[in-house]
Design a protein around this nucleic acid. Structure first.
Length: 268
DNA sequence: GGCTGGCCCTGTACGC
DNA sequence: TGCGTACAGGGCCAGC
């Protein structure tokens, strides 16, 4: 499930392959989630950015206007130049003027593709309302505390909601809450705990980024390699195993419908 | 306006 | 071996 570290790893690899290239052919699955991919036809890619879990390719269209190709990888999405466009689970592809073809493969079809006018994210409400980037100056301990205090929703669900901070999914939410010593179902987070959580979010994401992302099943880098962060996880997916901090058995539970692992002793 | 829960989607694991 | 069922979960939306 690609979260910020996985999407950023993909972005870094795609940037040199795509910037300066013009899309000369494209095709998409008829589903409304993917059907607008060919709208990038004729456009030149001028940059590849990331916002939260969204990849944004800046486009200069044939009539010289600015647009964006927005890609969300969902749970099983991959962007690969080494896959055949007619292969299984391919939902879209774009052929570039250098002959390379970027293929979007998405087994479960939870991904999404949109071509929009630059900055016009009205058709993507989560992107439009995205919170601060976790490594930006806009993400502060005080801002996180205030954002969390505005709601009584469980802290893990708030992290997953993308509004208090962008780019955190189920894996890194569990990891960050474990690092901060906060129980995932907590509804009230005070200033001190928000400060701990702020650092923990950054730390968990930074480790994931340094390891090229977490591969549990489907995530692959642009070159098809798995990430290396799965062996660095302290909490997510380790239910039934001892907590690396206190030795208690990590507990598997469901928080607002999401599978969750936490330590019953050191996460309060 | 905030919150909750259901839906989408398909491969895998598991029980019978 | 084959079938049916549960489960995984990010984003969106309807309903309260």
């Amino acid at each position: 499930m690609p979260e910020l570290p996985e999407v950023e790893t993909i972005r870094v690899a795609l940037d040199p392959l795509l910037v300066g290239r013009t899309v000369v052919d494209a095709e998409a699955h008829p589903s409304a989630k993917f059907a607008s991919a060919p709208a990038a036809l004729g456009s030149t890619i001028t940059g590849v950015r990331r916002r939260g879990k969204y990849l944004l390719a800046d486009l200069r269209t044939p009539d010289d206007t600015a647009a964006e190709l927005v890609v969300h990888l969902g749970m099983t999405g991959q962007l690969r130049p080494d896959l055949a466009p007619d292969g299984p689970h391919v939902r879209a592809w774009w052929q570039m003027d250098d002959g390379a073809t970027l293929v979007f493969r998405d087994i479960r079809r939870f991904g999404r593709i949109a071509v929009v006018a630059a900055g016009d994210h009205r058709s993507l409400p989560t992107l439009a309302a995205l919170g601060p980037e976790p490594f930006s100056d806009a993400f502060t301990p005080d801002g996180l505390w205030r954002a969390l205090a505005r709601s009584t929703t469980r802290v893990k669900t708030q992290l997953l909601g993308q509004r208090v901070v962008a780019g955190v999914g189920n894996i890194y939410a569990d990891e960050a809450l474990w690092r901060a010593g906060i129980a995932p179902a907590t509804r009230r987070v005070g200033r001190d705990r928000a400060t701990r959580l702020h650092g923990a979010v950054r730390d968990a994401l930074a480790v994931g980024l340094a390891n090229g992302g977490t591969t549990l099943r489907d995530y692959r880098t642009v070159s098809g390699e798995p990430g290396r962060n799965q062996s660095a996880l302290a909490c997510y997916g380790r239910g039934g195993l001892p907590c690396a901090r206190c030795g208690a058995v990590l507990r598997r539970s469901v928080v607002d419908g999401r599978g969750t692992t936490s330590c019953p002793r050191c996460q309060h």
